[in-house]
Amino acid sequence: MSGAAVATAGARAPGLSRSMSRSRRVKDRAFRASLWACGFLALLPLAFIVWYVLVKGVSALNLDFFTKEPAAPGEPGGGIVQSFVGTALIVGMAIGMAVPLGMLAAIYLSEYGRGRLASAVRFVAEILLSTPSIVAGAFIWAVVVVAMGTFSALAGAIALTVLMWPIITRATEEILRLVPQELREGALALGVPRWKTIARVVIPTAGSGIFTAIMLAVARGMGETAPILLTALGQDFLTTNPVAPADAVPLRIYNYARTPVLSQHAIAWGGAIVLLAAVLVLSITARFLANRQQRRIR
């Protein structure tokens, strides 16, 4: 209220900066400064993390790192090839499951979804986005791991699917909604059945936008540790068996960081560099594509 009164007083003396009381000016300056400080504070950790991961991890990167199984603790050399293979296996299977599930759900929401079921699905997808990843892990542990009697890459992939399905659904829905209604009508008016309209006009037009949604989900899935830990457990040897325990890069980082062995710390940093690079490249590319896509469609 007092702010309004002061403001009116200010308006009565137009153009004279002197007329603004000193305390008001100081307050405004302090406020602006504190906002800038927030911006600075937010950038600090990103810079520090990227910097330290680069500095500490780069020395671990060599051919062995990508091609060898781990050396015995204390012995030099060795790599974490099984982690890379495991991550590829788990994330690959998760993409195979989550992409069709998520895309079809998104198609329902954007192309057919009307009424109560649609709003219920949308709401559930939104709150599923907030499921703690450890809970997805515990859920799949209790269902799949216990039923199969073994930890496995497959269980890991299912746990990631639980996390990625709602992400792909919501992101793809938003992107399909950007496709102009006129294009749908244009195809329908030619006597094209609805499903072909969706498959041949709506989805190709959304094009790279859908790819963006998938990339974001993959970036999320790739970096997850907790759900993989509870379902795939970890593995010291190279395997591509989907029903055997599997390793993953984040899992390896987690395990090595907690040992007292210095050479393993170095490998953990090396893993972090690879993981961070992959995740950041995916996220930045996705964002770039999304921006371009939105401009193209509109």
């Binding site: 911006g39 937010a42 950038l43 950790p45 990103l46 520090f48 993390i49 330290y52 991961v53 500490k56 990843s133 970036a219 790739m222 970096g223 997850e224 540790t225 907790a226 984040p250 899992l251 980082i253 987690y254 960081a257 710390h265 953990a268 940093w269 972090a272 993981l275 961070l276 995740v279 950041l280 995916l282 996220s283 930045i284 964002r287």
Partner: peptide
Amino acid sequence: PLAVFVDLLAAIPSVVYGLWGLFI
């Protein structure tokens, strides 16, 4: 760029935060 950098904080995997937190 500022908005993107802030969003990128969310992209950093949890385990990388942990590693950084633990050792640095």
